[in-house]
């Protein structure tokens, strides 16, 4: 379990960061994609037991930004609340939507500090931050080390490698996708990560989307998390194309 005698010495903080990165891999998978117009987040929700509710994976931060989490939910809420406050104060003092890059660098700096000072631990959560600001749609990946990178598409969490493979394979198609087509790509990427016998259902799937109401125009359709019956049509629409052949799974007859 422990790599070496550095583990008990908190000053050698770098290994702590690596363990925090492991916490991200324990979380259920989330996927984010941007097109030229929209930003989309999709997630698999888990429930602790049959009768419990499903863990929330997507959060709206502001009208124009949302985030998806993988890892310690309580750490994510700290970061999410902080981001909400920053966005509100930007609207109050400047009357504008917080630029995504500025927002993300704020949490990145918070996280970096935790890796360099004794008595702190890194955040045990990875985030995908997606939104649309004055310079267009953006997607950022945030890691516990404080590293944030702008991505065209990304997946983090358990078994997310399969989703990333799907995303890499279809990367060229994303820029010109419409809103719903982009969501379907997200769901297909999610589907790749599922273990045998599991599938996307209205209970375990969340979809968040933000983009212009009409092509090339303001105002935005504000970032909204869709759950339950709202995601039914999208799920059905990708179930169809799998059965219709394509590069999805073949069904034995």
């Amino acid at each position: 379990m422990f790599r070496n005698n550095y583990d008990n010495d908190s000053v050698t903080l770098i290994f702590q960061v690596e363990y925090a990165a492991e916490a991200v891999k324990q979380g259920s998978v989330v996927v984010g994609i941007v097109s030229k117009t929209h930003a989309v987040l999709v997630a698999i929700k888990r429930n602790a037991e049959e009768l419990s509710s499903y863990q929330k994976k997507l959060f709206a931060v502001d009208e124009h930004v949302g985030l998806a989490i993988a890892g310690l939910t309580s750490d994510a809420r700290v970061l999410s609340n902080f981001m909400k406050q920053q966005c509100l104060s930007e609207r109050l003092t400047f009357d504008r939507a917080m630029p995504l890059e500025t927002l993300v660098s704020l949490i990145s700096d918070k996280a970096q500090l935790n890796t360099q000072h004794y008595g702190k631990r890194p955040y045990g959560v990875g985030l995908l931050v997606a939104g649309v600001d004055d310079s267009g749609p953006h997607l950022f990946e945030f890691q516990p080390s404080g590293l944030t990178q702008e991505m065209l598409a990304c997946a983090i969490g358990a078994r997310s490698q399969m989703a990333r493979t799907y995303l890499e394979k279809n990367l060229d198609k994303f820029p010109d996708c419409g809103r719903d087509e982009l969501i379907r790509h997200g769901l297909r990427a999610l589907k790749e990560t599922l273990v045998q016998d599991r599938e996307l259902t209205v209970e375990n799937t969340s979809v968040g989307v933000v983009g212009p109401k009409e092509p090339g125009k303001r105002p935005l359709e504000a970032f909204k998390v869709h759950d339950g019956a709202d995601v039914k049509d999208w799920i059905n629409s990708i179930a169809d194309d799998a059965e219709a052949g394509g590069d999805g799974m073949q069904v034995d007859e």
Partner: peptide
Amino acid sequence: ASSTTTNSAQPTL
């Protein structure tokens, strides 16, 4: 903020 963004696309205040 604006100079670090791609193509300096981010508008200033």
